[in-house]
Simulated scan of single mutants.
Amino acid sequence: MTDTPARLLTLLSLLQTPREWPGSELAERLSVSPRTIRRDIDRLRELGYPVEASKGAVGGYRLVAGAALPPLVLDDEEAVAIAVGLRAGAGHAIEGVEEASVRALAKLEQVLPSRLRHRVSTLQNATIPLTRGDGATVAPSTLTALAGAVTGQEKMRFGYRAGDGTETKRLVEPYRLVSTGRRWYLVAYDLGREDWRTFRVDRVTDPFATGARFAPRELPAGGAVEYMTRSMGRAHAQPELALEVDFAAPASFVAARLPAHLPPTPTGPDSCTLRARCTDSVEWVAVRLALVDCDFTILAPDPLIAYVRDLTGRLGASVR
């Protein structure tokens, strides 16, 4: 690549991924000599980008947090605002922006000065999001750590809590982060089990990138999303529920209190109906309906009706 400005931009894009790049690998990627790479690194440093070099047989270059932001045409207030917004989008699985939020957040926090990173964390910890649905919140730091390991193809260790509460330690090769709109999942090859696994990210604790890289394996048939869908189906094995519920409230009122995959249909100015199929459990659906806070009538399915009757009896008996 003989165009110096284009080469510098490509080099900067590679360095913005959270991993260490050997000089020989950068030279091969850009079709130049290692000497040219060293000169280009010096140019980036002159422009204010904090590129750190490590020596040795496995040494290389990495973009790190500096004393100030690189020239991104952002002041401190704008950087804090963007980071907080990205954390909200990433941590609460806002449909449509969650994956882009994680990628952008991983790049931004990698070069964010410590004084600004502290301000972001302080503001985040002082606010409480009002979210819809039952999607478990995920620490943005966990997401960015996983995203960095996926991008850098680094083996990762973390603690994991299974659905029955069992705590285990895992060593994995992380391949993809997948958002379903309600939850985040990691598709990875579990080296201890010698097989592919899907992990709920809200159950991951203390993620740590080991620094050891791995050669990518061929993903299961259909790719990460299809494999995750199959594995979730095997894990939950929930029968499909054909919901029929009438509400004595406007559709806009009910829709604001139900998750997006259960949309009501207006039947009048102060009434609506829900006709939908889902694979959620009857327990979860019963609780969600109760939180709508209006009168409603469950017409189907029978398992949901039976569960609500039993739950009503138990709740009534608990408040003598």
Rank of each mutant, 00 (worst) to 15 (best):
W184D: 05
G222P: 13
S31L: 09
R275H: 01
A106V: 08
A215M: 09
L63W: 02
R132N: 11
T144D: 10
L315H: 06
A237E: 07
P174I: 09
T122K: 04
F158I: 08
P34I: 01
R277L: 05
F158Y: 14
L14H: 11
D40Y: 09
R87D: 03
A145P: 02
G181C: 10
P259S: 02
A242D: 13
P216Y: 07
L8Q: 11
E78F: 11
S24K: 00
A215C: 07
V245H: 04
G60Y: 02
A6S: 15
V58K: 00
T137R: 07
D76M: 09
V245W: 04
P140E: 06
G223M: 07
V282T: 08
Q153D: 07
L72D: 10
E28R: 06
P70R: 04
L258V: 02
P264K: 03
V58R: 00
L258T: 02
D246Q: 06
V138E: 03
E109D: 08
L105I: 15
R29H: 12
S31C: 09
S141A: 15
Y160P: 10
L177E: 06
P70E: 10
G165K: 04
H118L: 04
R35H: 07
A235H: 11
L9C: 12
P303Q: 14
W284K: 03
E194N: 14
I305H: 08
L289I: 10
L289K: 04
R288Y: 04
A162S: 13
A106F: 03
K169N: 14
L14R: 11
C294K: 05
L143G: 03
Q110C: 03
R176M: 12
P266T: 02
D202Y: 10
L123H: 08
P129C: 05
W284G: 05
T4A: 15
L191I: 12
R176K: 15
P18Q: 06
C278H: 05
V245Q: 03
S271D: 00
G59K: 00
P250E: 04
L311V: 11
M232A: 12
L74W: 13
E240K: 07
P174A: 13
S101E: 13
G163I: 13
